[in-house]
Design a protein around this nucleic acid. Structure first.
Lengths: 189, 189
DNA sequence: ACCTGAACACCGTTCAAGT
DNA sequence: ACCTGAACACCGTTCAAGT
């Protein structure tokens, strides 16, 4: 319990920051399943210290993603105000795929988080789905949809494409998105 | 090296079969990353025996999938002879997704296998892509395509949908397939 | 020819003892 | 209040010794 009082001790605060910095570097290089032992070692602390600050891997990941999520949701809010509803939806899909490309394995964590209320990433996943729902509603009102779809459908597409980018290539993921968006949207020209 | 001579010893043959049977049961229940130690224990052999028969996890998986693959490719050959080119392509996509649903985690192994020539599943992945290419060509000739696509695109879609089925639900995977196929195919009615 | 199981090198997670 | 690191329970993989 390192968050009980108000001001964390200076060494605790420094350890937390070093852990986050090393975790980011290691997750970037080795993916979300990298060894926590290795992260603690690189941060110069014992493994118990890592667990004291972050009770599990998802908590560590959630702390790392927090800033990035804020930027992503700000982008979502911007897109909701942009004129072209279809283009905004497409831009949103690409933004989330780029977001999920931060660490290999992140797509699976996000896909798990949307259904698991205990996940530290649950709230972020729900917000992503919600933004998708609203962008879909705008596109529908603009007459830009060929067929019905939900925020959950958009969430599934984004995560599937992020997974394809991890497993195969970003190009292949892009082609999957083009295919699905062509199925969703009225041809523009 | 248990395959050097012609006739394997009777006990070796029995162990191999028991290992395959238990591996199938365990992979079904726990996915492709289940403990190999546990499989050996259930089969009543030491862990070294499992490794003597199957040098790694993919080899065990490849042996398990062999029969199933034959059935899948036979289905592919049938579909290449069926009249409706677009319906045949759609049926193929669903057949592979059902195939990949055998074990949780199989989609990732297949996605990895298509690029990794050393994988025991490489050949099967190449064949799947090839069947996709041929079904696409037939659909193109029949004027059933709205846009270009390749066997690799179909392979990516199939595996992405199989992954969505694992992580979210078969329903969600089905909606992804519908979206992508609507983007690929000329509306039928 | 095949099987056994100890040995090795690695994990994640907890918790008593320290400072 | 926080940190340490040994302890525990688990892996995958190899290989000398057996039958």
């Amino acid at each position: 319990m390192t968050e009980s009082g108000r001001r964390p001790r200076a060494d605790a605060r420094r350890n937390r920051e070093r852990l986050l910095a090393e975790a980011d570097a290691v997750f970037r290089a080795q993916g979300t399943n990298a060894s926590l032992e290795g992260i603690a070692r690189r941060a110069g602390v014992a493994i118990g210290t890592l667990y004291a600050h972050f009770p599990n891997r998802r908590a560590l990941l959630g702390a790392l993603l927090h800033q990035r999520n804020d930027a992503l949701f700000a982008r979502g809010a911007d897109l909701l105000d942009e004129p072209g509803a279809a283009a905004a939806l497409t831009a949103w899909v690409h933004a989330v795929i780029a977001h999920a490309a931060a660490y290999q394995g992140l797509a699976a964590v996000l896909a798990e988080g949307v259904d698991d209320e205990a996940s530290e990433l649950h709230q972020a996943c729900v917000e992503m789905t919600d933004i998708g729902d609203r962008l879909i509603a705008r596109a529908r009102e603009a007459g830009a949809l060929r067929r019905e779809a939900t925020g959950a459908d958009i969430f599934a597409l984004m995560n599937a494409a992020a997974w394809v980018a991890e497993q195969m290539s970003a190009d292949q993921a892009g082609r999957l998105v083009e295919l699905a968006m062509a199925g969703l949207l009225v041809p523009s020209s």
